[in-house]
Design a protein around this nucleic acid. Structure first.
Lengths: 193, 193
DNA sequence: GTCTATAAACCGATAGAC
DNA sequence: GTCTATCGGTTTATAGAC
């Protein structure tokens, strides 16, 4: 088999959760879009919706981390790279009609006070993102505590940018954030004049 | 009457949407918590869930803007004020078990690609917040374009801070953002050395 | 006009035939 | 292990009694 039923279920679930949220996504619809029989869902995920969501979030979270890392790796200096990451996010928003954004955020806010197992999954994903970015900034000679602060700023601004730009259907907030976050990173560099 | 049925419905809806999201909130539950007969909901809001949500979002959005403005007004200098706002948000998160955060964000992400009327309501609320903050920063002698960028940074970082802190159930991200955003405002002040 | 009862559709989840 | 039929419960919304 090229792509198994199980993988199609995870992918369709991740897309549906990103665009419609957790409570707004129906399992029926996910199986239809996966071209999977409804019963197969409970064959592969005996834990039902929560187990499927946990796997979809982890899969999408790892993919998004790779995507951001690739954009950051493409630029030689870290300040330009940060600006490019926000520009890439803005471009993706425009290209997809403001549908493709963070695959974790909507669900994370929904489950933060209502579903403890899924809340822990989203916490692990965000923490892994922050760890990777902290190491990257620290590799530029920035002190660890400062590198962590910049990583938090990067992720929070990106998430806030998705929120504001999707609501307004304009990329201006995301573009403005690219400038201010890049400046903050610039100011933290040891070689900063 | 002290507080009318209609106002209780709006308040209960706003709280439910903030904690459980739009799709995750049931009208039945909202009427129970409002101590309102179910039929009264459609008496006051013939447009049903969407009309109730639009009014609840606008009401909560205006209230949150007032809350933030009060915190910012309490401090004489704007840099301290920005730090205080993030500290206040962190304190509220801890005091409410990470339940009381932004009353708009969860719904805004849910409806951004699925409900055009409500998406427009969330866009108007965010834009009113940004307008108020832009005017405040401009009042400090910061150029309009720069003031707008700082307003976007403030709101995006606050929203990203709610997301990261609620997921992790730790206030460290929100506190770190208070420091970095305050620094960004400091650097933009005309009197900045 | 306030409230109860219920309609009609959909939800997550399961049983069981093949 | 693939797939259908359906369970019991909940959803939004409405009809109609009082």
């Amino acid at each position: 088999m090229a792509v198994g039923t199980r993988e199609r279920l995870v992918e369709a679930a991740a897309t549906s959760f990103m665009r419609q949220g957790y409570a707004g996504s129906g399992l029926k619809q996910i199986t239809v879009e996966s071209r999977a029989p409804f019963g197969s869902l409970y064959h592969f995920f005996p834990g039902g919706k929560v187990e499927l969501a946990a796997e979809a979030l982890r899969w999408a979270g790892a993919g998004y981390a790779q995507l951001v890392a690739a954009v950051l790796d493409a630029s030689p200096d870290v300040v330009t790279a940060v600006g490019d990451a926000f520009a890439a996010a803005a471009h993706t928003l425009e290209a997809t009609g403001y549908a493709d954004a963070c695959p974790i955020a909507t669900v994370a806010l929904e489950v933060a006070s209502t579903n403890e197992p899924l809340r822990e999954v989203t916490a692990e994903i965000f923490e892994s993102w922050l760890d990777g970015l902290t190491a990257r900034f620290a590799g530029e000679g920035i002190a660890p505590e400062r590198a962590r602060e910049l990583a938090v700023l990067f992720v929070a601004a990106l998430e806030g940018g998705f929120l504001l730009s999707r609501a307004a259907r304009r990329v201006e907030p995301m573009e403005a954030l690219g400038r201010t976050v890049a400046e903050a990173v610039q100011a933290a560099l040891p070689a900063h004049a």
